[in-house]
Design a protein around this nucleic acid. Structure first.
Lengths: 229, 229
DNA sequence: CGCAAAATTGAACCCAATCAATGTTCGTGG
DNA sequence: CCACGAACATTGATTGGGTTCAATTTTGCG
């Protein structure tokens, strides 16, 4: 692992207060790897070998059942995933694949459990991390169950605009298929919903979205601090 | 708190390895309280005062937005809830109300965070508990997104039968409205779905359900270890 | 027995998925 | 630089699952 990446990982809340000794123990057996887009990293039902951390790119968590597949979460750097499975040494409940070319740090699962047993600071950091991840799932569950697809899109636009600096002009970094799955709708529905949002001053020109009347959009979207973040 | 309850709580995985000193510190300021059915215990958006533990009865976690309400989870003894909010000292993302008369142990939140900071055994137990709760949410999210309401009912029947001792005869302990919300459907839909399941050998007589052809029901339900318990 | 609450049944409607067809964009090779 | 093809995006039509509203039936309890 290069110096820059080492410091990036060291600065994560998860490792911030871990002693040098244990951190080096974890990193000593860790692998930093690059993966191409669309590669399945883990499969539900398998036992965890590594704790994964998205360092670059984005990763999609999904699950399948009876011929159907659903996206459960999309992760951006820097985020751990399948932490719960690693801690409990139980099978993955979700699969993961790269949405873009990605760089992933992989820490062997037995090492994580070992340091967790010996280093109290790491145990505390894990609690915080798990609590955070838990709350993220709850938020997306609420988003999914309490809003229809048009509302989810409207709120995503508001959030993305804030994220891109309130320029009222959003550049779509990902293709629409991916955006559709992130928002929990079919690509066809994303098109339709975007068209419908023109009623609230959202226009599209190529790969950018323009918000003409943010007040109207807000009024329709009804953003909620207990769902969005 | 009575002796019996003290031992019940002491035996929880969450407290198993906590030192006597810290356990007594937690319990010293804890309250064991009985609540009537239908009482709202906590409201989303408020800051956590207590860590709650369902000791008896059942509790429903739900959330509201824009005039709509959705059930996110139903808890049976013995389960902690809103642990993540307590740990992070952030507002509740869910509300909770009793579904039956219930007995709840309430441990002041600052105490939980205090012992968490000082007792490594408690920190480790918290990690396990959070990981477990996290996995439960993931399971119910998958159940919700990958199955339709008829399939959810069929699987619930299978699980409930196993839970009641494979007698192929299920006694409905809760009223159908509550069951409907637990299964994520309107009461009307529960009726309709039950009627449709007669095709697979499920008949109802008053407050009990009879499974005539469990093979057929299983074939329809497609139980899945990565969704169901 | 009679009432109120719960459960069932029916009808209309809404949201979203699917299938199908058309239009657009973009990269490649001629 | 243009032409072509493939992937992506849009639009239309259809279907199905599920909610809602309304009416009726059943249940349970005083």
């Amino acid at each position: 692992m290069r110096q820059a990446e080492y410091h990036l990982v060291r600065a994560l809340p998860l490792f911030e207060n871990v002693s040098e000794k244990y951190f080096d123990e974890l990193m000593g057996s860790a692998l930093m790897q690059r993966f191409p887009q669309g590669l399945t990293l883990i499969r539900e039902g398998e036992l965890p070998d590594f704790l994964h951390i998205v360092v670059e790119g984005s990763v999609e968590l999904f699950a399948s059942h009876d011929g159907h597949e659903t996206v459960l979460d999309i992760l951006e750097p820097v985020t751990t995933f399948i932490l719960a499975a690693v801690i409990r040494d139980e099978v993955y409940l979700k699969s993961a694949r790269t949405l873009t070319p990605a760089q992933i740090l992989m820490i062997p699962a037995p090492g994580v459990r070992g340091v967790f047993d010996r280093d109290a600071a790491f145990a505390r950091a894990l609690v915080n991390e798990l609590a955070l991840r838990y709350r993220c799932v709850v938020r997306s569950l609420k988003n999914e169950k309490l809003r229809n697809s048009k509302e989810r899109l409207a709120n995503w636009i508001l959030q993305e605009d804030a994220h891109q600096g309130n320029k009222r002009q959003i550049t779509l970094a990902i293709d629409k298929q991916t955006l559709a799955s992130r928002l929990g709708m079919a690509p066809e529905n994303l098109s339709r919903n975007l068209a419908k949002l023109s009623k609230y001053g959202v226009t599209k020109s190529g790969t950018t979205l323009i918000i003409d009347d943010i007040a109207a959009l807000r009024q329709f979207a009804k953003p909620n601090g207990l769902i969005d973040q």
